[in-house]
Computed example of a mutant assay.
Amino acid sequence: MNRLLWIIVCALVSNLAFSADYIREKKWADEVVPGVVVGDPVYLEQSNGHKFLTLYTPAKDAKAAVLIVHGMGVNPDWGLTGVLRSRLPDLGYSTLSIQMPVLASNAKGAAYSVTFPEAVQRLRLAVDFLKAKGYTNIALVTHSLGSRMSAVYMLNKPDVAIKTWVAIGMPDRVDYRKVSVPVLDLYGEHDLPDVLKSAAARKAVLQGKPASMQQMVAHADHFFDNMDEQLVTSVATYLDQRF
């Protein structure tokens, strides 16, 4: 095999190894959909024809819609995203929790950067879905890697319907000054090292940003395990100040 052909083969193998794993997504959907009690499964279609799962839960006389984005390698009903998507409608907020791109189960966080363009496309499609439902006020609520994915969207002229952003467990130094909407940077006292290490830098760029703040929740870990009430209260209290 000549050198050029070898380079092409290696590139193709690399792209296959680190591209969105649609088979894994389908397994998540097959597992999640039969157990959905609150809300309805809705599939949205990307430009490449791939349909991804979302869970839509309307609230009566909704104050706003909340677009919820999960963390690395999981699904739209997993853990704290499942808690938020099912509990916020009782507090007056319709929710749309969306499946973000996943890689193979052994992929590290750094590998996910290749999925960010597709993640942004899914966020745009989700916003379009909510706007078609009549929502003109949308909040973005994200967790962990989902917060990193959403930062790419929020730093590049998001839809004007997005009015605020709650970034939970943000594991990166994001310059929130470049985000056009108010931000709540929410994390746990016992969060992951990357989240805690960058917390001071994130707080610094929030200083003076209108209606924005950072909140550390005492005793909480990265996933707010056994702290559903504190999580929902923190998010809902901030949203109530915006809508």
Rank of each mutant, 00 (worst) to 15 (best):
V33R: 03
T54W: 01
L44I: 14
K63S: 09
L67K: 11
N48Q: 03
W78M: 02
Y43F: 15
Y22V: 12
Y56W: 10
L44G: 04
A20W: 06
L67H: 06
L67N: 08
V74D: 05
D30Y: 07
A62T: 03
E45M: 09
N48T: 07
L44V: 08
A17F: 03
P41I: 11
K60D: 13
W28C: 04
L44P: 03
P41T: 12
H70K: 09
S19M: 14
A29Y: 14
A64K: 13
Y43N: 10
K60G: 07
K60C: 01
D30L: 13
G71H: 06
H70Y: 03
G39H: 14
P41Q: 07
V32T: 13
N48M: 03
D61M: 09
E31Q: 11
A65H: 03
F18H: 08
H50F: 12
L44Y: 04
H70N: 06
A62F: 01
K27D: 15
D61S: 13
A65F: 01
Y43A: 10
E31Y: 15
I68F: 00
F18A: 07
V74W: 04
A29N: 13
K60Y: 06
A17M: 10
Y56Q: 04
A29D: 14
E45N: 05
D21V: 09
G35Q: 10
V66F: 01
G73N: 14
V36S: 01
K63D: 02
